[in-house]
Design a protein around this nucleic acid. Structure first.
Lengths: 248, 248
DNA sequence: ACCTGAACACCGTTCAAGT
DNA sequence: ACCTGAACACCGTTCAAGT
């Protein structure tokens, strides 16, 4: 399984504010199509990515795109792949596994923050079957570090998937919350959500009311990392006897 | 926030093998529409749920449905809500919180196993913003038990969301794997997936190759519960000082 | 008030015709 | 070989007309 090599690192640094910028007739390549798709997705969410809009941004007809991608599904997969590839590309100077897990988790957190549509895409990819493409590579990247954390071998799989679900779920939720702000600052969004939770009936929602206050003022990245540490604590606890060393 | 009360418990016991069974002209109610939608979703996945197919199953025209639901989004939410409501309805005789978490988790596991489209729906709902409708109620149900597990108050929220993500992610993945079987038995599916992982290049995927064997023979529900226990172990470890008692 | 179903404004995808 | 863009078979949603 190879991941299309034609994709330069600049692929997800596409940041055009408007979409239809290029008029030049460069060759229509798969990489250019994927870049344009990412730009459209960043600007208009998944619903905005139509072959008509995309072909207009590329100054061509809808049919042309089909010479390079098989359909919309593959296009979405390729766009997700490009973003995740960039996010998983660590500076890589053999840090401690626990630090590497933090770095991977935060890299994905930021990537999903920049491209919120990636969250739903990874979730769908994960739900489609065991693991495919981008989500498979995230699983591998996390698992490789879990292997060196002293977890008993028979817990490797469950441990790593638990970590994966937390990272994707929390990062996606963060991005969605940030998205729905509509320009308000973060504090205002949190306050609005906290207000909503506090106005729920106390008999039906004791938990949400109890945590509403703590949601009102917290740092997103800090809370995210705390969650990663929580799962890592479970890992450490369940592999207690070796606790820290490098198992093999 | 109330959850439409017109929904009888039988709502998700709809099990028709074919779809177009009713010809009678009972009143067209919201509950009947939601029941029919669930049946269509169970039979043909999300892509199969069109207003034309649904109206045919209800022996009416597409426009009639809009008198009872505002659009496709609300219809999907209502269908998800109905399935989750039934799954969260515990026998409820004050069991230990840890057992209740297990019961909730397995209830959702089985509900998603019966209605695989629910997984993607909950994920989308979760990604749309902080938490809405069905996913909000799952969060509350889990959180209420976490509150009584001796976790420090400031960890309640992160702890519960980690649990939520694991449960939804793992249950969804299980359902997807089972779905893709196409009639093969479970062992054959696992074997096929394990074979795929074992044929990955060893340099690029040491982790997936290492866990492939353990995936080949395992019990789905057993592995799922082990994952819940892993997160609970993290909870216990991070709230170590009180470990077990009922904090308040 | 509720239902009907043709009509509207889209969509992904295909394919003859061009270069 | 690659591109074009009209055309095809859908889709969610609306709305005049019926009951």
């Amino acid at each position: 399984m190879t991941f299309h090599p034609s994709l330069e690192p600049r692929s997800n640094s596409v940041k055009m504010t408007a979409v239809a910028t290029r008029k030049r007739t460069d060759a229509l390549t798969r990489a250019r199509i994927v870049d344009a798709a990412i730009a459209v997705l960043d600007a208009d969410e998944e619903a905005g990515l139509t072959f008509r809009a995309l072909s207009q941004a590329l100054a061509t007809g809808p049919g042309a795109i089909y010479h390079h991608v098989s359909g919309k599904g593959e296009l979405l997969d390729a766009a997700t792949e490009a973003v995740v590839t960039a996010a998983l590309d660590l500076p890589g100077g053999g840090a401690a596994p626990r630090e590497e897990v933090h770095a991977l988790a935060l890299g994905l957190f930021d990537a999903i923050d920049d491209h919120p549509w990636v969250a739903a895409q990874l979730a769908a990819q994960l739900a489609r079957t065991s693991a495919h493409g981008a989500s498979l590579r995230i699983l591998e990247a996390l698992g490789r570090r879990v292997m060196t954390l002293g977890v008993p071998r028979e817990h490797w799989f469950t441990t790593t998937t638990a970590l994966l679900y937390y990272v994707l779920g929390a990062a996606g939720q963060n991005a969605a919350a940030r998205e729905s702000s509509g320009g308000d600052d973060r504090a205002a969004v949190l306050a609005r959500e906290a207000d909503a939770w506090e106005s729920l009936p106390a008999e039906d929602f004791p938990f949400l009311r109890a945590v509403a206050a703590q949601m009102r003022d917290h740092d997103d990245r800090e809370q995210f990392t705390a969650g990663v540490d929580l799962v890592l604590a479970g890992i450490a606890a369940s592999g207690a006897r070796v606790s820290g060393g490098s198992a093999r």
